[in-house]
Design a protein around this nucleic acid. Structure first.
Lengths: 121, 121
DNA sequence: TATTGTGTTATAGTTATATAGAACACTATA
DNA sequence: TATAGTGTTCTATATAACTATAACACAATA
């Protein structure tokens, strides 16, 4: 279910863990009220230390995305729902970009810039 | 011309510098054969140490994006050109996403996932 | 109550990232 | 040749990120 953490990317592991869990929720693979795997399992899944997992979960909790229940587990908060419409729009865009031979990282850099400069906010 | 480095984002400064310079080239603000500002100026512009600038430029060089000329300066390699068509496509997409109330980071996470799963590669 | 499964906290050590400051090397030009 | 502007290398130090390991705290249940 979860992708791996790339230890040589230069991006801190805890940030990668945050983003991977967010993705699963956005895609609907983790739904409202779902329980996450126990921290010791997440440790094995991502091949990082418990403290790194906790740092990620702490951040996700402070963003209101998950909720900790001591002695029970971590749960996806009920406000979270999959972004099916966004997925559809981006799917069409990605197909066009791939035909043009653009790579993902370049596409992201350009999108960040377009996002910032677009006046229709 | 250049945006700032965010020292509290958790993303290493040298990676941010790499991406900011890449953006300027993709947008056409830095063109083929253009000379970059001297490393000591880049140090002031980004408010980071020379060594951090050098680490970024080293990486950009190994990716074939810029070229170092000892005693002269850093130059954008001739193979680089602005991605105007990509900008146009992403501009339309971004407008739709903004209307839907999506934030940039969420859009990027979903795009990464769609990119990976799309079979039309 | 005792046990198991869960989250939580703490300590100590390692590595990567970033800084400051200085010195050195190459190029262009007066 | 001398100088100014550029890139390059080095050392020492500080901080953030990550690891390993252990112990502690809470909840559910036999």
């Amino acid at each position: 279910m979860f992708e791996k953490v790339d230890k040589h990317s230069g991006i801190p592991a805890y940030i990668q863990v945050i983003d991977i869990i967010k993705k699963e929720i956005l895609l609907g693979n983790l739904k409202s009220e779902d329980q996450l795997p126990p921290v010791r399992e997440l440790q094995d899944i991502f091949d990082v230390n418990v403290n790194t997992i906790l740092k990620a979960l702490e951040r996700l909790q402070s963003e209101g995305i998950v909720e900790a229940r001591h002695g029970v587990g971590y749960f996806v908060k009920s406000s979270q729902s999959p972004k099916t419409e966004v997925i559809k729009i981006l799917d069409e865009t990605v197909q066009k970009l791939k035909i043009m031979g653009i790579d993902l990282h370049t596409a992201i850099l350009i999108m960040e810039e377009v996002w910032k400069n677009d006046s229709k906010t």
